[in-house]
Design a protein around this nucleic acid. Structure first.
Lengths: 223, 223
DNA sequence: TTCCTGACTGACCGGTCGGTCAGTTAGAGT
DNA sequence: ACTCTAACTGACCGACCGGTCAGTCAGGAA
């Protein structure tokens, strides 16, 4: 019965705080800011409500802390998907797949961010969302610009548009996947990587029939 | 002073009800279901809170009525953007532009729908959202299939993917436009039609540099 | 004139909200 | 041993929540 951590919850330091943050993130993401009550968060975290107010000044403060905490993880993870060698096409494919995977993996946080963006009351916490989102976007634009400078990509298109398309496709997939499951036209609702690959493929080569016969140097995954 | 409608608000029939629905739609869209209080809705509609409960059994009932009411408008508007003659490319361009315009015009309703989709608690009202959304999607897929049968579009791509890309691009533009305004890379945050045109252009022709020298029969807008 | 109906209202209900506070506990410093 | 401090709690607060109710009022039917 002797655990490495003290038997009492007290003096556990940041343990309770971490549990509070986790519970808050889950409930904020699940029900939104207003519908997630401090009582419910406290209960889920296994602490008293007053204890939450001991660690955070207010519900808003807690919310911002949750956002910042989750953003830190995401931002850190962004570093992994940067500046891989190889063609821009393969980079794009990899970025998209990682991006979508990251969204799906941290779906609670993604819902949180989307809710935040969807609210039109410009609060302080919106800037947090802007920052995380902006970093992803800027990185993607950088990849695309590199492709244009290396004349691998057409130069008469706006990289920001392509970036929006790619990110938007992933975000939309995430948002709509539960709805997609009921659409007879859609067969990729449960296969994000296949979806991501096809999206990149279309972006790279377009959808018109008058395509060049073959150019085998695009993103090639064995299959 | 003798107006065609009686001077008193009483006996005005559906006038108060319409005001309630409008106020509710605005506040639900702005703050979400939970944060929009019946008191606030009543105040904005210029009626007593009890009067709302006279017309609607509960807050949920009011919410569903708002959704249904807004969906009716949108569904009706969908009829206008169907089965235009011309190339599939021009159809796509037109659909996208109309779709994005419709979203921006009914931004309150769009926010409402997105919030609804984003909530993971599968309630009755989610089906309303599914229906409206599904109609748009199915219509777009139909256009694309026609393009494939007429061999105007490549046949080795999934129409549902292209539809997702297009709708997703518009939805994402709508969601992120306030954020886009602060991005130095983006210059189309305030120009939806330009955005839409460029998106369709990319979808049609792809972004790789190895494009056939010229094929002037794609979507051509003078510019 | 009388009655009935339905739109409408102010006052009110129990319950929950975010937030406070006095007080308990336990480890660290001395 | 004593103190200090921070983690932590249960009891509590005023405000506001969704919802109810008795009652007012205007107009149509008789």
């Amino acid at each position: 019965m002797n655990s490495p951590t003290p038997a009492h919850q007290t003096r556990s330091g940041s343990d309770a705080m971490a549990r509070i943050l986790a519970a808050a993130e889950a409930l904020f993401a699940e029900h939104g800011f207003d519908a997630a009550s401090m009582n419910a968060i406290a209960e889920r975290a296994g602490v008293s409500k007053a204890n939450i107010f001991h660690h955070f000044n207010s519900k808003d403060t807690l919310y911002q802390a949750v956002l910042r905490n989750a953003c830190a993880e995401t931002t850190q993870q962004l570093k992994h998907m940067v500046a891989q060698p190889g063609t821009v096409a393969s980079n794009l494919s990899q970025f998209s797949e990682n991006h979508l995977g990251s969204i799906l993996e941290h779906d609670q946080f993604a819902r949180l961010l989307l809710r935040e963006i969807l609210s039109d009351t410009p609060k302080e916490q919106l800037k947090i969302a802007q920052q995380v989102f902006g970093e992803n976007f800027a990185e993607l634009v950088k990849i695309l610009r590199r492709g244009q400078e290396g004349s691998e990509l057409r130069t008469d298109i706006d990289p920001a548009i392509v970036a929006t398309l790619l990110v938007g496709a992933n975000v939309f997939f995430f948002q709509a996947r539960n709805v997609f499951r009921h659409f007879p036209e859609v067969d990729f609702a449960n296969e994000p990587t296949r979806y991501s690959r096809r999206v990149v493929e279309i972006l790279l080569r377009g959808i018109l029939a008058s395509t060049p016969t073959n150019h085998s140097n695009s993103a090639q995954h064995k299959e």
